[in-house]
């Protein structure tokens, strides 16, 4: 108990309080060692204050969720998130193509190959890290979405056999869209392969004009491997 030691002092206090008034104090020497020192009462901290503390703490967390820009070092005051910063930046032509490609990919391809590009084991081959995707010459790569793909294929050193043939997109996607989505997968997930141009897609379309795009003639791995990619 904090006030025990000073109990006898209480009655003396008012007079010592009065003595502190300089004007009322005529005789010096009042401040002896026996003078009492203040003590503190034991009133509890009011519950509303603790509740308010919890509330404010919670508010603080919410505030940081909304106003900290994801703790990203590139988000400054008028912007709320990296996404907003990106949107405010003038988009380069390349950036526009990638953005379009990403949109197409998320809409058309991610169902099987996943947003992560990892596919799903034994069913849909991965794109991330796949040598088919980052091959400098896109001649083989362009053919796959044009007409689809079937049968056994070796990707990243693993053999797998596609249980269902891949859907062809030659009819649904235009040349620029195809080029954009291929460029996207060649530069996403840490890839650094050169972009695919609409002209390249158009050229492949011409070369394979005789092949139906309805899904009746998907490519096989062996067929693709015969297409030269050296030049």
């Amino acid at each position: 108990m904090s006030s025990d030691s000073k109990k006898p002092s209480r009655p003396a206090s008012p007079s010592s309080g009065g003595a502190n008034r300089p004007q009322a104090q005529a005789a010096p020497g009042n401040s002896t060692a026996k003078e009492t020192e203040p003590t503190a009462g034991l009133a509890p901290t009011p519950i509303w204050l603790i509740l308010l503390f919890a509330l404010l703490f919670y508010w603080g967390q919410l505030y940081l969720d909304n106003h900290a820009g994801g703790f990203d070092p590139q988000v400054y005051e008028p912007y709320a998130s990296v996404k907003q910063v990106k949107a405010a930046n003038p988009m380069s032509d390349e950036g526009a193509v990638i953005a379009k490609g990403e949109a197409v990919f998320n809409q058309m391809c991610a169902v099987c190959h996943q947003i992560s590009g990892l596919g799903s084991a034994g069913q849909f081959p991965p794109l991330a890290g796949s040598e088919w995707v980052i091959e400098p010459n896109p001649a083989r790569l362009i053919r796959i979405p044009l007409h689809g793909l079937t049968g056994p294929i070796r990707v990243k050193g693993q053999d797998l056999n596609l249980p269902v043939p891949m859907t062809p997109f030659g009819e649904t996607l235009s040349n620029p869209d195809l080029a954009a989505v291929l460029t996207y997968i060649r530069q996403a997930w840490g890839h650094k392969a050169p972009p695919v141009t609409p002209a390249q897609v158009a050229k492949v379309r011409e070369e394979t004009a005789s092949r139906p795009m309805s899904g009746s003639a998907p490519w096989t791995s062996d067929e693709l491997l015969k297409i030269p990619v050296t030049q």
Binding site: P73, Q74, Y76, V85, A88, P90
Partner: peptide
């Protein structure tokens, strides 16, 4: 100058 984190009119 225009920076990614602080874009300005080109």
């Amino acid at each position: 100058l225009a920076l990614f984190e602080a874009p300005m009119p080109t």
